[in-house]
């Protein structure tokens, strides 16, 4: 599903530069649930943003579902993000003046899907994350866990190939974190490929594979026995 080779990324600030990703080689198969770990500043978010086409690499190759991702103009990048990728952010990033249903329906709007169908699809995804009854609530009326579940529903709405989550539980307490991870496991069990950035070991262990980043290179990459969450 994802193939990256010798990926490099530097940030330039005036005269100084910071080499963040120093030649990453990394493959993800269809249906995997991968945790990306590493200390703060190790380049986890940078990697995820490049995978999400929110940022560009300086060097190396990136293939997503056998499509070479390079030199994209913003219009094509937007199309690819919409079709192939779903994002979940630490700070939810819901649009504050839209209710839960409208937030979930937004990617479908950018796909040009008619209104009726959009509403129906969005509602079914809200139902999937257990928030059907909260469809008309504004984000400010939802708890953190509920917000993140709406965000996950929104990320799934356009039926992407890969779900990218940057510290999805970073702003949640441990019980709510487990709820959200249970939802992610459920979605993964249905076949979705998911990458989760985290620096919590508990969370990483709920995935099927852990990748360790240190100083811009992968220092460890192992399949683990997944800690499956029950009874939530």
């Amino acid at each position: 599903m994802i193939e990256i080779n010798k990926l490099h990324k530097s940030y330039y600030m005036g005269s100084s530069s910071l080499h963040v990703l120093k030649g990453i080689d990394f493959n993800v198969e269809d249906g995997e649930l991968v945790a990306i770990m590493g200390s703060s500043g190790s380049g986890k978010s940078t990697l995820l943003n490049i995978l999400g086409m929110l940022d560009n690499a300086d060097d190396g190759t990136y293939d997503l579902d056998k499509i070479r991702i390079e030199n994209l103009d913003e219009k094509t990048a937007a199309e690819y993000r919409n079709k192939f990728l779903g994002f979940v952010f630490q700070s939810f990033n819901l649009i504050t003046y839209k209710n839960a249903l409208e937030n979930v329906a937004l990617p479908l709007y950018y796909q040009g899907i008619p209104r009726k169908e959009r509403q129906k699809t969005a509602l079914s995804f809200l139902e999937k994350v257990g928030l059907k009854d909260w469809a008309t609530h504004l984000p400010s009326e939802l708890s953190g866990g509920q917000k993140q579940r709406v965000a996950i529903a929104r990320a799934l709405a356009s039926n992407p190939k890969v779900l990218l989550a940057d510290e999805p539980t970073g702003a949640l307490d441990s019980n709510t974190s487990i709820e959200v991870m249970a939802l992610i496991q459920k979605i993964n069990n249905e076949g979705k490929t998911i990458l989760v950035v985290t620096h919590e070991h508990d969370i990483a262990k709920m995935c099927k594979r852990i990748v360790h980043l240190r100083d811009g290179v992968i220092v460890e990459d192992k399949k683990i026995k997944q800690n499956i969450i029950k009874n939530v």
Binding site: L54, E74, E79, N82, Y110
Partner: peptide, 16 residues
């Protein structure tokens, strides 16, 4: 700006 960034992540084209 931030809202526009979210929209872009969700697939909003520049023309949109």
């Amino acid at each position: 700006t931030k809202e526009l960034g979210v929209r872009k992540a969700l697939g909003a084209k520049p023309s949109e």
